[in-house]
Amino acid sequence: MFDIKSLNFEGLNNIPKSIDIGYHDSNCGKIYNKNGSFILYSNFTFYGEKFEAIQQNHVVGCFNIQLQEIPCDADGNPLLVSYWFERNDDQHSRIVFLFSKEPTHRIILKTGKIIDNNTDNQYIMDMGINYILAQR
């Protein structure tokens, strides 16, 4: 049985267009697939209670992402196919986004406004991750 310690929220903020191509960067990157699909990834660190390092008897799970905007094409068609989390170790994880093609714009969910990614050099400007911290 696990004791829930906290529900944590981390603001990852953004994924810039200037990230490296390929998997060689340990923090973030982008992949152009032969079939035209496109992958973005970004690493993040888990924190325990009060933003200290996660203790050995703690477990992290139940990930969820909050997007304030969705990458799209110039006409506002969403391009996000899927996203998933990959655990690197007890302190770190990676979020991976799969798109049908490279996004050129993003649509703000609250307003419906479409923003050209070239205006601020961003693929995703505002996102956050929720997860549960439990004790074994």
Rank of each mutant, 00 (worst) to 15 (best):
M1Y: 08
F2I: 11
F2P: 08
F2T: 09
I4V: 15
I4D: 10
L7T: 01
L7W: 07
N8I: 10
F9L: 08
F9P: 04
E10R: 11
L12R: 14
N13A: 02
N14T: 05
I15A: 09
P16W: 07
P16H: 06
D20G: 06
D20V: 00
I21W: 13
Y23M: 12
Y23N: 04
S26M: 09
S26C: 11
S26W: 10
S26F: 08
S26I: 12
G29C: 06
G29R: 01
K30L: 08
I31A: 09
I31T: 07
Y32K: 09
Y32T: 04
N33E: 10
N33K: 11
K34R: 14
G36W: 12
S37M: 02
F38M: 00
I39C: 11
I39Q: 12
S42M: 09
S42D: 13
F44P: 11
F44H: 09
F44Y: 15
T45W: 01
F46C: 04
G48T: 03
G48K: 00
E49S: 04
F51V: 05
F51A: 10
E52G: 13
A53N: 00
A53L: 06
I54M: 02
I54F: 01
N57T: 08
V59G: 00
V59E: 04
V59P: 01
V59Q: 01
C62R: 13
C62T: 13
N64G: 07
I65R: 05
Q66K: 10
L67Q: 10
Q68D: 14
E69P: 03
E69T: 04
E69K: 05
I70G: 06
P71M: 07
C72L: 06
N77C: 04
N77K: 15
P78G: 08
P78M: 10
P78T: 07
L80H: 14
L80E: 15
V81W: 04
S82G: 15
S82F: 15
Y83G: 08
Y83R: 12
F85D: 01
E86M: 12
R87A: 07
R87V: 13
R87G: 02
N88H: 08
D89V: 04
D89Y: 03
D89L: 01
D90I: 02
D90F: 03
D90W: 05
Q91W: 02
Q91F: 00
H92S: 10
V96M: 09
L98S: 14
K101W: 12
E102R: 08
T104V: 00
T104C: 01
R106N: 11
I108H: 05
K110Y: 01
G112Q: 14
K113G: 00
K113Q: 15
I114Q: 02
I115W: 06
I115R: 14
N117D: 14
N117W: 12
N118W: 05
N118C: 05
T119W: 07
T119V: 14
D120H: 12
Q122Y: 07
Q122W: 06
Q122S: 05
I124A: 02
M125F: 12
M125W: 11
D126E: 08
M127C: 10
M127S: 07
G128S: 08
G128Q: 01
N130H: 03
N130T: 01
N130S: 02
Y131F: 04
Y131G: 03
L133S: 03
A134I: 05
A134D: 11
Q135M: 05
